[in-house]
Every structure is written in structure tokens, then in C-alpha cells.
Computed example of a mutant assay.
Amino acid sequence: MATIRERSGRLIADFRYMGIRCRETTNLEDNAYNRRVLKKRLEQLEAEIVLGTFDYEKYFPKSKRIDEFKQKKHQQIAVQTNVPLFKDFTQVWFSQKKIEWRSSYQDKITIIMKNYLIPAFGNQVMSKIKKSDLLNFRASLAKVTHGKNQTSLKASRINQIMTPLRMILNDAAERYEFESPYKNINNLKESKVEVHPFSLEQVQLILQTVRDDFKPYYTIRFFTGMRTSEIDGLRWENVNLQRREIYVREALVNGQLGGTKTYGSNRTIQMSDRVFQAFLQQKSLNHGKSEFVFCNRSGDPLDYRLVNRRVWHPLLRFLGFKTRPAYQTRHTAATLWLSAGENPEWIARQLGHSTTEMLFRVYSRYVPNITRQDGSAFEAMLNKLNQEGVAS
């Protein structure tokens, strides 16, 4: 039975909840009136405990024991329903799924679970998570700031965080036979891919100016469209100079060599003569020094962060070019090929795209000869048809 005690002139509620003795100090001064008020309040509290409707936070919003009892309550529900807590199921789910992913993606999911998902849902029973909880969580992510400039998370990053949450909830719903709360929650609309390719004249100037030991590196980047992780992880065994082919089978991510970004990224790139000559030059620079085509003095693969800081960005500043990521070399290759009139299907294969859709969706505005917006090409075709009709 709940009792009332006094300490330093304040009234203390003394009661038992979930088998634990609780003593919570109130703001009520010790007098007869306040004792009567607190007594009625404790009677209501005990009734709610019996009925199973007691909410510790509602009665004692500043208590240090709120999280403790929330966790115990969730654990009790988990035992009663035989449905695990989010944090427990997530561990099992991750251990079973990680075999499908390369190590870099495993690390990415681990960070998301540790920094976002477990803190938000860890002590909740999987089947008790509601759609409103998910929407509130997503809304809270939009308010998170990061970096030196304290910028908000972009829609793309929020979608990346929500994706494993969706996978976890849907998997649990299937295993424990409850309806997933993630139903009808769509991804946030993301901004278009930022494409700022270099012109052919700018590429020529960059290759003329860059230090000699990096000329082959950037020549190959600009004229193959290889991703940073692909060229940094390229080994000589995957370069066939006789057939003039590059076999993209691996990628270097966070210093670890693994599979490529997607299965479609595994591809064979045809070398142009300029690329072939760049490989010959690079071979003369580090022949026998390393298994990697591009390496540092120790023979280890390049660290793209170091290369960007010491070579790429200083070079752009020196030339007075707008700063942009080195990844724009890939976009440059695509736009130059398209503007030259190369077959889009061939370009897609070179870049590791499964279809040509992304080419035209991302790059079309940089290719005026292919994507006309004035209708003149169609008008010219109709005029030609009319002229042939008159002639006949």
C-alpha cells in the first residue's frame, strides 16, 4: 500500500511498482491539505497499477526511473507476446543478412543502427511500433544537424536511414505474424543528382597542368568514367593491354577491397588509344612496385581523401575552376561520349548502367545535339517528307 513520507519539508510518495519500491519526491509542502491531495493521487495511482494502465512518466515526468520502467514494461510484453524487442531482433536480423552485403555496406548499416535506430526503437516490442512512431522518427531526422556548418540531413540521407528500418520491420512482421507499420510510407523526394561536368577544353587543360605522376590517373578517370572506388581498387591483373580492356571486378571502399557497387557494375571497359597510352605510362612509373595500378610510395592503394586534398582541389583552385568532387570525372566522360554521338547503349555498358534511362535522365541537358528542345529536328523531318511528296 502506498504511503506518504516527508523529507526536508517536502512530501514523498512511497509505493511499489513492478515489484520495485519507488520513492518519488513531490513539490508539495508538508501540510495537512497537501497530504490529503497526495493521498487521493496515490489511490488513483494504485488503481491504475492494478488495471495495468499506469504511466510512470505521466505521474513523475522528471523521474530518473522512467526509462528503467519503460524497458521493463517492454520486456514483459515481449515475454507475453513472444515477440522480441527491436534491439534484440535487430541483432539477429543483421547477423543473418550481412552475408548478402559487402563489408562497406555492413559498416554503413551498423552505423545507422547504432546512431539512429537502436536509440529510437531499441526497447520497444517489434509488434508495438506504430506508423505514427515511424513518421515522428522521420520528422525528427529532418531536424538533425551535422558537420561544421550544422546543416540538416538531406532527403537522400533520411531515406538511407529509413531503408534498413523498413527492412527490419517487414522481416519481423513476416516472422511473428503482425502487420508491418511501414505500410504506405514512401521515400522522401530527393533532389536531382548534381552534375557539373567539365568541357573537353577544361579536361585538356587539367591534364596538361596536373603533376606528371598523376597524369595517367586522371586521364583514365576522364576517359573511362570509372568510379573512384573502382580505379583506386584496380589491379594489374584486371588490365589487359593486349586486348585493350579493363575488367572492373573490384572496388576499394574505406581501404578494403571488395565487390563493386552493384552486380551491374561488373563490366569490361574498352580502352581508347589515349587510355591505352596512359596505362603504358603508368606501367613505366610503377612497374613491379605494386599489384595496384595506382599506388603510393609504399605500394598501397591510393587514399582518395589524401589525393583530393593534395592534388585535385589545389589543381582546380590553381586553374580557377569551380570546386567540385573528383567524381565529376565520371559525369564528364558520360557527357563527352554523348555529345560525340556515341551509341547510348555502349556508353551505359562502359559506365556499368543496366539501361540507358539514367543517361538521358541525368545528362541530356548537357547534350544539345541529342536532346533538342525547340522541335526543329521534327520540323526538318516533316519538311523533307513534304518535299519528297511534291517531287513524286
Rank of each mutant, 00 (worst) to 15 (best):
Y116E: 11
T260E: 10
V83N: 09
L241M: 14
T323Y: 07
F360C: 11
R102V: 02
E100S: 11
N184A: 13
E379L: 11
S152H: 08
R317Y: 05
Q106R: 12
S180V: 09
L165T: 02
K58L: 05
F214Q: 00
R16L: 05
R102D: 03
D133Y: 03
Q160V: 00
R5Y: 09
D212F: 04
F178Q: 06
T371C: 05
I158M: 04
R65L: 06
K40V: 03
G375N: 13
I4N: 14
S127C: 12
A326F: 05
V311Q: 09
K98W: 06
L351K: 12
I129F: 09
E177A: 10
V144C: 01
T219Q: 05
L85Y: 01
R41D: 03
E68W: 02
A334T: 09
L351I: 12
E46R: 02
N240A: 05
F178P: 04
D273Y: 10
I206R: 00
Q202C: 03
P325F: 05
T151A: 11
L359S: 13
S392G: 13
L207F: 09
Q350K: 09
N123H: 11
V193C: 00
D213Q: 15
L241H: 07
R102H: 02
S180N: 10
F321S: 10
I112C: 05
R324L: 08
L306E: 03
W101F: 14
W337S: 07
R16D: 14
I168W: 01
S364C: 07
V293D: 11
N170S: 06
N184W: 05
M162P: 00
L385I: 13
T356W: 02
A78W: 04
A340V: 02
